[in-house]
């Protein structure tokens, strides 16, 4: 990416962009009588996302159902956690979107790194845990309790997986279900 802004169709007249300094109405430079909505570029210093595979060159494979490649191309530092590390991901791997290692600063081997959300084909969403998260999100007090039990007390990602009874290594690499 690296462009200063992107023109878009729509949103004008709505409250969505009313108080937003990153959306402005501007003349279309190629047709000055026409007004378009222009969105300021987001150029993150750091981007974090989860993928399925990483390889020794830092290439990663992520779900095609998302905009991870665009995020990687827009950000200065990209850190990707993955379910498994392989020797080499082919550029034409059809299991996901290939992100070249040149965009990637670090690859982190983090099995169940998307849990309790899904990371197909490795695991599905854990509906019971998502329900617990949603219920905990209803108040500051409940959410503090959730963070204490699920994040701080386990102490680490490994500690959390132990608490959830998820065994690393055994199922990773084998599609579930």
């Amino acid at each position: 990416m690296g462009v200063p802004f992107v023109p878009t169709l729509g949103y004008a007249g709505s409250d969505v962009i009313k108080d937003r300094e990153d959306f402005v109405l501007a003349p279309n430079p190629f047709n000055p009588e026409e007004t378009v909505v222009v969105a300021k570029a987001i150029n993150p210093d750091v981007a974090l996302f989860h993928g399925t595979k990483g390889d020794l060159q830092g290439n990663v494979l992520v779900s095609r159902d998302g905009e991870a490649l665009m995020i990687a191309q827009a950000s200065r530092k990209v850190i990707v956690s993955v379910e498994e590390i392989v020797d080499k991901i082919p550029q034409d791997d059809t299991d996901g979107t290939f992100i070249p290692g040149i965009h990637v600063k670090a690859v982190v081997h983090a099995p169940y790194g998307a849990y309790p959300t899904a990371c197909p084909p490795y695991y599905e969403m854990d509906d019971a845990q998502m329900k617990r998260y949603l219920e905990a999100s209803s108040s500051d007090e409940a959410f503090s309790g959730y963070l204490r039990e699920e994040v701080f007390e386990p102490g680490s990602h490994d500690g959390y997986l132990d608490k959830m009874g998820l065994r690393r290594g055994e199922r990773i690499g084998e599609p579930v279900g």
Binding site: L9, G10, Y11, A12, G13, S14, D15, V16, L25, P27, N28, E33, E34, T35, V36
Partner: peptide, 16 residues
């Protein structure tokens, strides 16, 4: 209470 999208457009806005 909140305009998610408006049927009217500011003058000159491209709208299909």
């Amino acid at each position: 209470d909140f305009v998610s999208a408006s049927a009217s457009s500011p003058k000159g806005m491209a709208r299909r």
